[in-house]
């Protein structure tokens, strides 16, 4: 336990920002979902680092729950992508303008 917890915070912040930029920049829906996974992993790194730093197991339990939510999000998100592709024959976010103002 020699590495200070600040290093983990910096790493987690970097990965989170990369994921955020990926969600905003990319057009492919699948890449957008992958970027959301990046953000979830960034928070998980932070949880585990603080759990180890504070000697408290609750952080690791919350990573467990975040993983559950990530699995549910992937299942529903990919089902939505398949349904969209069936209607529009595209997974480009610019092609979906039903909810656009």
């Amino acid at each position: 336990m020699n590495v200070p917890v600040e290093f983990y915070m910096v790493l987690s912040g970097l990965v989170f920002i990369i994921g955020l930029v990926g969600v905003l920049v990319r057009k492919n829906l699948i890449i957008i979902l992958l970027s959301i996974e990046l953000m979830l992993n960034a928070t998980n790194i932070n949880f585990v680092a603080f759990s180890s730093h504070l000697g408290n197991l609750s952080g690791q339990v919350f990573v467990f729950f975040a993983l559950t939510v990530a699995a549910a999000e992937v299942a529903v998100g990919l089902a939505i992508i398949i349904a969209l592709y069936r209607h529009h024959a595209s997974i480009n976010v610019d092609d979906f303008r039903l909810l656009r103002w």
Binding site: V15, G19, G22, I31, S35, L38
Partner: peptide, 10 residues
Amino acid sequence: VIVMAASLVV
């Protein structure tokens, strides 16, 4: 490696 792989994903 994590930061590089994350950048490559995007």
